[in-house]
Design a protein around this nucleic acid. Sequence first.
DNA 1: TGCCCAATGCGACCGAGTCGCATTTGGGAT
DNA 2: ATCCCAAATGCGACTCGGTCGCATTGGGCA
Lengths: 153, 153
Amino acid sequence: MEKSKNKKNVRVNYGLAQKQVLANAGVKITFLRSKILAFAMDSKKPFSFEDVFLALRDTGIHRATIFRNLSLFKDAQILREVDMRQDAMFYEIATKGHHHHVVCKICGCVESFDMCGLDNLVEEFIKNSKEFDKISEHSFEMFGVCKKCYKKK
Amino acid sequence: MEKSKNKKNVRVNYGLAQKQVLANAGVKITFLRSKILAFAMDSKKPFSFEDVFLALRDTGIHRATIFRNLSLFKDAQILREVDMRQDAMFYEIATKGHHHHVVCKICGCVESFDMCGLDNLVEEFIKNSKEFDKISEHSFEMFGVCKKCYKKK
DNA sequence: TGCCCAATGCGACCGAGTCGCATTTGGGAT
DNA sequence: ATCCCAAATGCGACTCGGTCGCATTGGGCA
């Protein structure tokens, strides 16, 4: 796999910000990890395996490596999973604070938003629940048709 | 495929309630559809393809037939999809009124509940949204560890 | 009863994700 | 700077959920 014409430049190609994040999370820094992370940090909306694969195809990266690193980044809390009701799992940078998404069912565009009221609802549920007394995660996603796609019809 | 020892009994095996539902939705009544629907109506929690497959394996039903009919039932609004954060999609009878689920991450048990506050939150989001002015669906699922599983640890 | 189209069986195919094993490489120790 | 080993990657086979096209079967209506 070709990484750089000049062996001496490999290290500086890693990217400072990515290096920082990886070191911080106690994750070994490699060329491919910094590339994946750079892509993730640039992405303005949740992305899937395929997005990464296409973005990095010129590096010759193997499918398995992407899956392994997405999973690693999730465990290291660098990324967070986002369920977009697609076949594939989506991811986004975990530092973006808890929020939710609306997904356009036609073009797939995404709008993010805070939903301050949700935590209260979760609290309330817990009080009334017979079988659960702790909730570790919740997901709340909305689906519709965005204004652009609506006009096109 | 063996459906019944006695050809004359095929029709009465269909089941009255299921026949009703299918006819009502404008869906052609067949032996396998009534079986799938009967299973769905009996099920006390959301079920997957595999659940149906196991329940009906003695009929010799083909995988594709189950997938096709689950999809058909969804389009006909007889079933509704439930996202359980599993690999496979889950389904439940659509007449059960809008509600949500908590899923135990260990044993997979499910508790259902109403979440009256959610519609208000959706409304509020719409008002503030630049890109959407109508939401057709939303999902809200919670994940935790149920009391039984918690004790076992 | 017979006919026609829809439902089913069948099997190949697809894409997401995983795994074991051989090879390469990052980074700490010298 | 070099060496070395554990960890990362490549590779390819495999699993599993789901889809598709085509041949056969069976529902339901005339």
